[in-house]
Amino acid sequence: MFWNLPFIAVVALSLIGLATIVIKKNLIKIFLGITIFESAVNLFLISLGYRAGGIAPIFTSAPSTDMVLATPQALTLTSIVIGVATSALLLSFAVIIWKKYGTINTDEIRRLRE
């Protein structure tokens, strides 16, 4: 039961993130929802890498050569870096939309439709 706790947190965080994206009309809040969703995915990846009694894959301080595979950590790190790039690009879009449209309400950012 206790081991499932991270995965329950993943589901909860994903739902919070997706609900924010769907319900909130403010662009910045939508972007925050995306960030929350990304964190949920990162948490999912890192929880996959957990092995009970495993040894951290740091060569210099490991007591033996039996270490856990560092792949999930590497994946998470990559995913975080991509997430930072995504957030930066989205926020810069929001800045331009604010300058040009004078609003960040998605109900009013709909000049392209039909």
């Binding site: 929001a94 331009i96 939309i97 040009k100 392209l112």
Partner: peptide, 9 residues
């Protein structure tokens, strides 16, 4: 005029 940025978002 912001249209392209809207599409990109």
């Amino acid at each position: 005029g912001g249209l392209a940025v809207e599409a990109a978002i």
